[in-house]
């Protein structure tokens, strides 16, 4: 790891001030991606500004169907939260399968979506749940937040404070994890918001990060059943190809994971 400086922010204001002072600062939350990346010398921020102890970024609120999750909430906290599980068990299940238990104790929802790894799980949930991403400056719809591989709508120095969504009528996430890294080779989050509003988001498989599969959404709005997505056309040209699976393999995985997710949602 290249040399760096560490600062623990006590508040959002403090975090912004520290960022402004830093030459090439980066915010860190759980650090479960950033620290390994720095160890590989793929990232070399001059300063790390730790957001994990900022009170405004913590906490989970559920009021009726409205769920708000603070950005510094860990995957383990989402996975085991009694209130969320009652209204949207799919996101708890998703959180309980990120990485492994030790990673889930550190990694946070804000960090995951700010990084927008093309194989991360949360971006698919945010898109399918029609979530709103709150930052210290504005609110951004998930559809406009994720901009492609490792790219988001966040501006320099902008900090995610929370995510908010309305619990769907039913939802489920199904992923095919890489057996070594446990990152999704394909993960599909399906959500039925009622009144024909169905959302299907795919992570891990697309060559430009998370995306919504509109044809599947249309098919499911007409007929919510695994069969409805079984024959959906998945464009192989839009898929990732690597040593773990080529475009055709991933395109098929998208259909299979979508079928499983619909079946699991019931």
């Amino acid at each position: 790891m290249y040399s760096t400086n560490y600062h623990r922010a006590s508040s959002l204001k403090d975090a912004q001030a520290l960022f402004k002072k830093a030459g090439d600062g980066k915010f860190v939350s759980g650090g479960q991606t950033l620290l390994p990346t720095m160890k590989q010398r793929l990232a070399a921020p001059s300063d790390l500004i730790d957001l994990r102890h900022v009170k405004d970024l913590k906490g989970i609120k559920v009021s009726g169907k409205k769920v708000t999750i603070g950005a510094a909430t860990t995957h383990a906290e989402v996975a085991t939260n009694d209130k969320i599980v009652k209204v949207c068990p799919a996101i708890c299940s998703l959180a309980s399968h990120i990485g492994d238990p030790a990673v889930r104790h550190m990694g946070t929802i804000g960090g995951s979506i700010a990084n927008n790894d093309p194989a991360a799980d949360y971006p698919a949930a945010m898109m399918a749940l029609g979530a709103t991403i709150h930052t210290n400056k504005r609110q951004i719809a998930a559809d406009k937040f994720f901009k492609g591989m490792f790219e988001t709508a966040l501006k320099d120095g902008e900090i995610i404070t929370a995510v908010e969504f309305s619990a769907p009528k039913k939802a489920a996430y199904s992923k095919y994890p890489n057996p070594a890294s446990r990152y999704a080779m394909c993960g599909v989050f399906v959500a039925d918001h009622g009144k024909g509003d169905v959302r299907v988001a795919v992570t891990g498989a697309g060559n430009d990060g998370v995306f919504r599969h509109k044809a599947m959404e249309k098919a499911l709005a007409a007929d919510w059943s695994p069969e409805a997505v079984a024959s959906a056309k998945v464009n192989e040209g839009d898929m990732l190809s690597d040593i773990h699976g080529n475009e055709a393999y991933r395109a098929n995985l998208v259909r299979v994971m979508a079928k499983r997710a619909v079946a699991a949602a019931g």
């Binding site: 620290l35 730790d50 383990a76 492994d100 030790a102 990673v103 550190m106």
Partner: peptide, 23 residues
């Protein structure tokens, strides 16, 4: 990946190779 470095921080298992001492 391997978990050989697992310790508990405030009662939670964490991987001590993937965090700074200052954290």
């Amino acid at each position: 990946q391997c978990g050989a470095c697992t310790v508990h921080m405030n009662g939670r298992a964490v991987k001590s190779c993937s965090m700074l001492a200052l954290q």
